[in-house]
Design a protein around this nucleic acid. Structure first.
Lengths: 201, 201
DNA sequence: TCAAAAGTGTTTTCTGTACACCCATGC
DNA sequence: GCATGGGTGTACAGAAAACACTTTTGA
């Protein structure tokens, strides 16, 4: 999700949303506030990514950026028009425009983090609606990891973890056999974690 | 490695070494400089850990800390007396004194990072001398991960990776059969990585 | 009736784990 | 000669990987 800058430097260029930390808020709070102010996104997975501190990364003055990344599913969190930024839009990470400042580097590091983390923590579900099909989940992993997965083996593995609740519902509005819907059981995950269980794809 | 503070607040208490980033240096550079100034340590593995930004973490004023962690082997990097800190000393992480500021939390996060990272990146070698025995390596993993490992399986696994160079040397000054020494082959590791190899313990 | 994706088991291969004894060395 | 850690192989079990066809549905 990028915003188009309406002020120099890098005017008219796309950039990551962001802003300054206030003296009376933590940086976690600031990240959440900025995200909300610039995109309308709320109640999403948000985690500190990395802190960027090269001396010339902003041409105006010395700026240190503590970058955060959020995971969002587009169906349940629509973008709202906001006042801060002139324009906000979603991009495919395989078709990014050129970015302001060192934001391309920040995106690279975020993708690397996601790729690493998605394999051993159940954060992939943040990118899907609450109810999803196993094929959607598989496609998600195939996209993030950049590999093709075997359908039968994938289902076997995921279902054996006992983290998915099989619902009595199916997809609607598809032009083929409707797939069963599942839900991720976060409570069960935390419970299993206590006992030494490790999520792994 | 902790230093004893000689100024308030938390005077006389143990704390992580640290200091302020200068306007003309990157935060990476600042971390390296502070480490060198306060402990004499140079040319060690140093990586950004996490940025701490709670509003009241320093009683004097608002301070944001970008924490770094270093991995050091004590045999090859002796501590030097320095002027900045009144005293510097190594502690076992299982016997830490109470720490100034939120440094106990920082240490906890560093240990968690090490525990996670040591399993899928070959950073454990940073904690050993260049030449080491397989038993030393095993003990290191057992200590960091907090588990006991099977000697035969551990050796089998490590040697099969082809990342260790078997030297024509053995330990000296031990009161039992001297163990063969090995070296980690970083070049080979990077070469294998290119081909999709993943280090994993 | 066709297209499109859902759903389902078995076999083979590989990897992880469990396990015990002899060897070399210094004291 | 004894204490101490060094060094070695095999068998079993469980996990991962390979693989193809039938079913359901809407258009």
């Amino acid at each position: 999700m990028l915003i188009r800058r309406n002020l120099p430097p890098f005017q008219e260029q796309w950039a990551l949303p962001g802003g300054f930390v206030r003296i009376d808020e933590s940086i976690d709070t600031a990240a959440r506030r900025e995200l909300q102010e610039e995109t309308g996104l709320q109640d999403v997975f948000l985690e500190q990514l990395y802190t960027f501190g090269a001396i010339d990364r902003d041409p105006r003055e010395r700026v240190v950026t503590v970058a955060y990344y959020a995971l969002v599913n587009l169906r349940e969190h629509a973008l709202e028009a906001t006042t801060d930024a002139s324009e906000a839009a979603w991009f495919s990470i395989s078709h990014l425009p050129s970015l302001a400042f060192d934001h391309a580097q920040i995106v690279d590091i975020a993708i690397a983090r996601l790729k690493g983390k998605v394999r051993y923590e159940p954060i992939g579900f943040e990118l899907l609606p609450q109810k999803f099909t196993l094929s959607q989940l598989q496609t998600l992993y195939e996209t993030v990891l950049g590999v093709r997965l075997d359908k039968r083996n994938f289902r076997k593995k995921l279902l054996k973890m006992n983290l998915l609740v099989e619902l009595d519902e199916t997809q609607t509005d598809v032009a083929h056999r409707a797939a069963r819907l599942y839900q991720f059981d976060a409570a069960k995950y935390h419970q299993l974690r206590e006992k030494g269980f490790n999520f792994e794809i």
